[in-house]
Simulated scan of single mutants.
Amino acid sequence: MTGLTPSEALREYAFWLERDRADTYRVRAFREAAAIADGLPELPDTEAGWRSLKGFGPKTSAIAAAAAQGRLPTALADKRAAGAASLDPAGDDLRALLRGDLHTHTNWSDGGSSIAEMATIAEALGHDYLAITDHSPRLRVANGLSGERLVSQWGEIESAQRNHRVRILKGIEVDILGDGALDQADALLDGLDVVTASVHSELTADSTTMTRRMIGAVSNRHTTVLGHPTGRKLRPDGTWRGQSSFDAELVFAACAMFGVAVEINSRPERQDPPLDLLLIAKDAGCLFSVDSDAHAPGQLDFLTYGAARAVAAGIEPDQIVTTWPVERLLKHARRHR
């Protein structure tokens, strides 16, 4: 007997797909099937019975039927075996010291899953805390949250918290505007636990403009983390989208002065900032935040990639705010408020 219910087996399969960076739409079928299974008054006992249900195809039916019969689904067994190896062994020791994640997205903006789904996987991965940092209003392409939607999200966070041990923090990935201001009202930012500030537009502006813009955000009393500082991204053809030009010594000196953590973005297609800039930030005396930038539950495990990059730069664990206990982290985040 596996001890897995059909919905648990389907969700675990979705986790492994997400960890492998499978297409979101492909993964969604398994999570939607899991939700259907949760609501069934009686579970089918054959694969054909599952296949007759709306929302179930051949793969989801095979997984659900095997779990319902007390067997480990073959497809899930294969995924477990493939996933047994570390994503990057160089990051394993530091990864074990990481207590949380300050950059994650849900289906409130451009993520694929609910707050509760994200919290469940964060808890399973051993997180002590998880910041929900969906996008701010200006980023319409990512369904950024208006002030009203942000406040509504707080209610869902509070509801999810009642069913989870992991501390769910109220956060935002707020756009850094052209003048260095943050794309949300101060009164709402005051109500957040964590503010990750990132540039998403006009990434090719000249160095002087980008430097002023980033220092403006870093000096804002609400900013906790400077997210993916260069904006670089790996294209499907294997080439890199050019990174933003800015005076790294000035920007990272400002981060050190104001206590803003430089994000070590763990997404394989970002790896931001690159090693040369990480070393400049380290020499400037910066704090760091190893974050997943997860847009799906399985991507929360990307932290191992970021941990490996921190190790390569020689960054000490206590310089990384996501190794800190939650109360120390929150005290630091509120230092200027």
Rank of each mutant, 00 (worst) to 15 (best):
112 G>D: 04
258 F>Q: 09
302 F>L: 02
217 A>N: 06
118 M>L: 15
107 N>L: 14
337 R>K: 06
207 S>V: 06
313 A>C: 11
44 P>M: 11
221 R>S: 07
316 E>N: 06
151 V>H: 11
6 P>Y: 10
274 P>A: 09
325 P>D: 15
275 L>M: 04
181 A>W: 00
332 H>Y: 03
210 M>P: 01
231 G>F: 07
117 E>C: 10
108 W>A: 04
48 A>P: 03
27 V>L: 01
59 K>P: 00
120 T>C: 04
293 D>K: 06
15 F>L: 03
211 T>E: 06
197 A>M: 13
90 A>K: 11
325 P>M: 09
287 L>V: 04
269 E>Y: 15
114 S>Q: 13
253 A>K: 15
73 P>Q: 02
159 S>V: 13
58 P>M: 12
337 R>C: 02
19 R>D: 08
126 G>E: 07
131 A>E: 07
172 I>D: 05
212 R>E: 07
214 M>P: 01
95 R>I: 00
76 L>H: 06
127 H>D: 08
313 A>I: 03
252 F>V: 09
263 E>C: 04
41 P>C: 08
204 T>K: 12
183 D>C: 14
23 D>K: 11
183 D>G: 14
218 V>N: 14
233 K>W: 08
136 S>L: 13
134 D>Q: 12
308 A>D: 03
115 I>T: 06
226 L>Y: 08
119 A>T: 11
138 R>M: 13
48 A>Q: 15
301 D>R: 05
212 R>F: 02
267 R>T: 10
297 P>Q: 05
291 D>C: 10
107 N>E: 12
159 S>A: 15
66 A>W: 02
96 A>Q: 14
153 Q>I: 01
128 D>C: 05
244 S>R: 12
181 A>E: 09
57 G>S: 11
3 G>Q: 03
278 L>V: 08
33 A>K: 08
281 A>H: 09
300 L>P: 03
168 I>S: 07
290 V>G: 02
131 A>N: 14
189 L>T: 10
312 A>L: 07
196 T>C: 11
89 P>W: 01
71 R>C: 00
279 L>Q: 15
49 G>A: 13
248 A>H: 08
225 V>H: 05
226 L>V: 09
157 I>P: 06
214 M>F: 05
70 G>R: 14
253 A>I: 10
261 A>G: 10
251 V>Q: 07
268 P>Q: 00
52 S>V: 09
131 A>F: 15
299 Q>I: 00
139 L>P: 11
199 V>T: 13
229 P>D: 14
141 V>W: 15
